[in-house]
Amino acid sequence: MSYAIIGFGKIGHALAKAFARNGIEVSVATTRNPQSFAADAAAIGPKVIAKNLADAVKADVIFLAVRFESRGDVAKALPNWQGKTIVDVTNAYGVPPEQLGGQPSAQAVAQAFAGAKVVKGFNHLVAAVLDQDPAVHGGRRVVFLTSDDDGAASEIGTLAEKLGFAPIKLGKISEGGLLVHARGNTWGQLIFKDLVKFD
C-alpha cells in the first residue's frame, strides 16, 4: 500500500510527521516544483519524499490536504480515480451551502475525484494538535472517519491505528458525517473536539 499527501501546508506537515513517527513511507506533493519543498520534507524524516503531483497521485491512498477550493486543480491530475482512496482532510468553512448544492463538502470532493472511494477524516483537529504525538496520557487521540464505502473507512481506520490514532467511524457522509463538516460559516459539532480514547 502506498501513501501520498497532496498539500504541504500546516496540515500536510502534521500528517507527514505522523507517518515519519511510525516509519511509514509517504510522498508529499503540491502544484509547485518538488525541489521548492524537498528540504522541508527531508527535515521531517527520510521516509517523507517530495514528488511532483503527477507522481504522487500514483499512490493507493491520497490525503487531500489542500484548500477545499483547490480540489478541482488536484483532481485534474488523473482522468479517472478508480481504485484510489481519497482521504478528504479539507474543510469548506466560508463556502456558501448553495455552492455545494446543499450537500456535504465530502460529496463535492467525491464528484471531483470521479471513481475514487472518499473517506472524510483527520479534518476536525487543528494543525497544532494534529502535529503532536497522538499518544496522550496513556490514551490515543481520536480521529473521526466517515464514508459511503465501509471497506474504505475500515482501511483508513487501520491506517489511523498504525499512525497511533484511535479511529471512530461515524457512518455515512450524509449521516454522521455532518458532525464533522463545515457549512457556510458554521462548524460541525465535532470539529475542534480534541478527544482521547483509553483502551
Score class of each variant (00 low, 15 high):
residue 130 L to F: 10
residue 181 H to P: 12
residue 173 I to S: 02
residue 191 I to G: 08
residue 180 V to A: 05
residue 69 E to K: 12
residue 95 V to T: 12
residue 116 A to S: 04
residue 193 K to T: 15
residue 129 V to C: 12
residue 36 S to W: 00
residue 72 G to K: 05
residue 19 F to P: 05
residue 112 A to K: 10
residue 114 A to D: 05
residue 150 D to W: 07
residue 113 F to N: 01
residue 91 N to P: 10
residue 71 R to E: 00
residue 170 L to R: 00
residue 170 L to I: 00
residue 92 A to T: 11
residue 76 K to H: 02
residue 104 P to W: 06
residue 131 D to N: 14
residue 199 D to A: 13
residue 47 K to S: 08
residue 146 T to I: 09
residue 68 F to W: 07
residue 101 G to E: 04
residue 185 N to R: 12
residue 196 V to L: 08
residue 32 R to H: 04
residue 81 W to H: 10
residue 157 G to H: 07
residue 99 Q to P: 07
residue 144 F to P: 10
residue 43 A to N: 13
residue 191 I to R: 02
residue 90 T to I: 03
residue 27 S to Q: 12
residue 76 K to Y: 04
residue 98 E to S: 15
residue 16 A to G: 09
residue 20 A to T: 00
residue 148 D to I: 12
residue 160 A to T: 05
residue 36 S to Q: 06
residue 42 A to L: 09
residue 46 P to V: 08
residue 45 G to R: 08
residue 113 F to A: 03
residue 46 P to Y: 08
residue 92 A to F: 04
residue 150 D to Y: 12
residue 103 Q to W: 06
residue 68 F to E: 05
residue 94 G to A: 13
residue 98 E to K: 15
residue 173 I to K: 06
residue 92 A to I: 13
residue 172 K to Q: 11
residue 50 A to H: 06
residue 159 L to S: 08
residue 14 A to G: 09
residue 39 A to D: 14
residue 160 A to Q: 06
residue 80 N to M: 03
residue 68 F to D: 01
